[in-house]
């Protein structure tokens, strides 16, 4: 399958820090999750792929267009939907006005066509009823949906979502996941998140990032399988474990190299993620 995004050797330094260190990836249609701790380089990678930041080294294409040139960058941006980590809104704008504003930035200058597109997108994210209400009076979940509607203007082939479920309550998160799943049908979505649940529920593929590098690239099942035979239960926290925490039953769940005769548990995506981060720390 021809990848929507193809990147090789991307690097970016700030001072002495490698925000991106030789990142190569290929993204295909469907939702790809990008997980990693704070400071891993997720937002920087998203900003580079969204053409907001130029990389120091390496190259990438989006839908066959090279954003290194001004003309290529404009083409990439026409095919791009971007929801930043903290989407900002003009306080006096309504959802309709805000999405309309972003539509103008996306070169939809024909008023009639633009308004029909804005209306369609607000209905799609279930905000048709509040389209005329001031954004500052909407809940956090509704605001995120306004930003998603803005990102979906022009039916972008590549959608970049930077931690869209942060700060949402569980119900809002579920609603937002449904919208992301819907948005992922027929287009390539790169979803940065802290929540392994997001990845488990939405993604056909997952990238784990730490220290500016991609530490894992595979399916969620493959990431989970990394922890097979390396998760066990104990009555006390096992000091030899890489990570351990008390569960709802009162027993401890440990991840690492189990002692002989340990009571092994079924691994989860989170276990695989923790072990991958631990291995990244050891190799750093």
């Amino acid at each position: 399958m021809t990848p929507t995004v193809s990147a090789s050797g991307l690097s970016l330094r700030y001072g002495g820090t490698h925000a991106l260190d030789d990142v190569s990836l290929r993204l295909t249609p469907g939702v790809t999750g990008l997980i990693g701790p704070n400071g891993a380089g997720k937002t920087t990678l998203l900003r580079v792929l969204a053409t907001a930041l130029p990389a120091d080294g390496g190259a990438f294409t989006v839908l066959g267009q090279d954003p290194a040139t001004s003309a290529g960058r404009q083409e990439v941006r026409r095919a791009l939907g971007y929801l930043p980590q903290t989407p900002g809104f003009h306080p006096d704008f309504t959802p309709f006005e805000f999405v309309d504003y972003v539509a103008i930035l996306k070169e939809l200058t024909d008023r009639g066509a633009r308004h029909r597109e804005v209306r369609r997108l607000l209905e799609q994210v279930d905000l048709g009823e509040v389209r005329g209400k001031r954004i500052k009076k909407l809940s956090g979940g509704m605001r995120q949906r306004v930003a998603l509607a803005a990102a979906l203007i022009g039916d972008p082939g590549f959608l970049v979502l930077d931690e869209p479920t942060v700060g949402l309550d569980p119900e809002q998160r579920m609603r937002f996941r449904e919208l992301i799943a819907q948005a992922g049908e027929g287009r390539t979505v790169l979803l940065s998140t802290h929540q392994t649940e997001d990845v488990a529920m939405l993604c056909h593929r997952v990238l784990v990032m730490a220290g500016g590098r991609i530490r894992f690239d595979g399916t969620p099942a493959e990431l989970t399988a990394r922890a097979a035979g390396r998760v066990w239960s104990s009555t006390e926290r096992d000091p030899g474990a890489k990570a351990g925490w008390r569960t709802g039953t009162g027993s401890f769940r440990n991840v690492g190299l189990p002692p002989v005769g340990a009571d092994l548990l079924e691994p989860t995506l989170e276990d695989g993620y923790l072990l991958t981060l631990d291995e990244a720390e050891v190799s750093a």
Binding site: Y82, G88, K106
Partner: peptide, 18 residues
């Protein structure tokens, strides 16, 4: 000061024009 700056930067409209 522009709350929508990041969205504006990655839009096809050239930043200089805006």
């Amino acid at each position: 000061l522009d709350p929508t700056y990041e969205m504006a930067v990655v839009s096809p409209m050239h930043g200089f024009r805006l």
